[in-house]
Design a protein around this nucleic acid. Structure first.
Length: 212
DNA sequence: TACGCGATCGTG
DNA sequence: ACGATCGCGTAT
């Protein structure tokens, strides 16, 4: 069952960032289902100097951050990488949660192809040249890496995660982390005082026997 | 129209 | 510690 709009809209962005840990990100692609447990996030909102939307700054690039919670915001950075965010709160308030890492669940073979260039769909930059074959741990542990592994580009920017026929969505599957760490965010200069990064260690991952 | 920088990553 | 590489925002 897909997470509903209320899940994304009825809490603050910082609370949502925490609540997203343990949820499963799912992408139904033409090659098969790709999914992973979210284990690292960061919150960004209009009151935050590090946010694209600081002070209500609304541009073509960050437009999706102002849509209602439950959309996907994808942007391009460092001239090489995409980063993916889950839009939060209500329409016309610019806020989102950056997904920094997931633990692969389904479709690791597809992720490996996307990361290392064995795919017949050669869409992603630099996938063939770099690095060593991904272990489960190394495949999606970073905001740029996970977009390559999951096949997320600007084409998916603005996708609605909550419609009946959406191919990209989030689910509750009973995954649970025993310990959540709260820290300052990575790669920002302003807003370092905000403790808006949340992560869990992979070895803490547990799965309940039953789930809703 | 021009320029400087960045919510990164893998290698050294 | 550093270079790759380009879209976007800000300034001209």
């Amino acid at each position: 069952m897909k997470l509903l709009p209320s899940f994304f809209q009825d809490t603050s962005t910082v609370e949502l960032a925490r609540a997203l840990l343990g949820k499963v990100f799912v992408y139904e692609t033409s090659l098969g289902i790709i999914s992973g447990v979210i284990n690292e996030t960061e919150a960004y909102n209009e009151e935050d100097e590090a946010s694209h939307t600081f002070g209500g700054n609304r541009t073509p690039r960050n437009e999706v951050m102002f849509w209602e919670g439950g959309h996907l915001y994808v942007y391009f950075t460092y001239g090489m990488y995409h980063c993916m965010n889950v839009v939060s709160e209500s329409a016309d308030y610019g806020s989102a949660v950056l997904i920094r890492s997931v633990i692969p669940v389904e479709g690791m073979e597809i992720m490996t192809k996307y990361r290392y260039g064995d795919t017949p769909i050669p869409v992603f930059p630099l996938t063939g040249e770099r690095g060593k074959r991904g272990s489960k741990k190394n495949l999606c542990n970073g905001p740029g890496k996970l977009c390559i592994a999951l096949g997320i580009t600007k084409e998916q920017n603005g996708a609605n995660l909550c419609t009946k026929d959406s191919k990209i969505y989030l689910e509750e599957r009973g995954y649970h982390f025993s310990e959540i760490v709260t820290t300052s965010r990575i790669g920002i200069s302003k807003g370092q005082e905000k403790m808006w990064r949340f992560y869990a260690k992979e070895e803490d991952l547990k799965r309940e026997e039953k789930w809703v």
